[in-house]
């Protein structure tokens, strides 16, 4: 799951996959703005066949939290 999330982030935020770390967040990824965040959410929903709640969308404040939210939804993917 982790690698897949990184691939999506790389694509959406237009950043090299090697530059994505567990500390990546809107604070250090210039392109991670509110508009692209929604694109990111859509891409995650499509990739993992899930539907994120508004609360979960706002909780995904950095890479580690994205993984935590996804694991909460589908623990088996962890």
């Amino acid at each position: 799951m982790e690698e897949k999330v990184k691939e999506i982030m790389s694509l959406i935020f237009n950043v090299d996959i090697e530059d994505i770390t567990e500390d990546s967040s809107p604070d250090n990824l210039e392109n991670w703005d509110s508009l692209r965040h929604m694109n990111f959410v859509n891409a995650l929903e499509e990739e993992f066949d899930i539907e994120l709640t508004d609360e979960q969308v706002t909780e995904m404040m950095n890479f580690k939290l994205v993984l935590a939210v996804l694991k909460e939804i589908s623990p088996s993917s962890a």
């Binding site: 604070d27 909780e59 404040m61 950095n62 580690k64 939290l65 935590a68 939210v69 909460e72």
Partner: peptide, 15 residues
């Protein structure tokens, strides 16, 4: 829960 801890850190100015 880990998510709560991560959220707390993320919501803290010093992260």
């Amino acid at each position: 829960p880990e998510k709560v801890r991560l959220l707390t850190a993320a919501q803290t100015p010093l992260k």
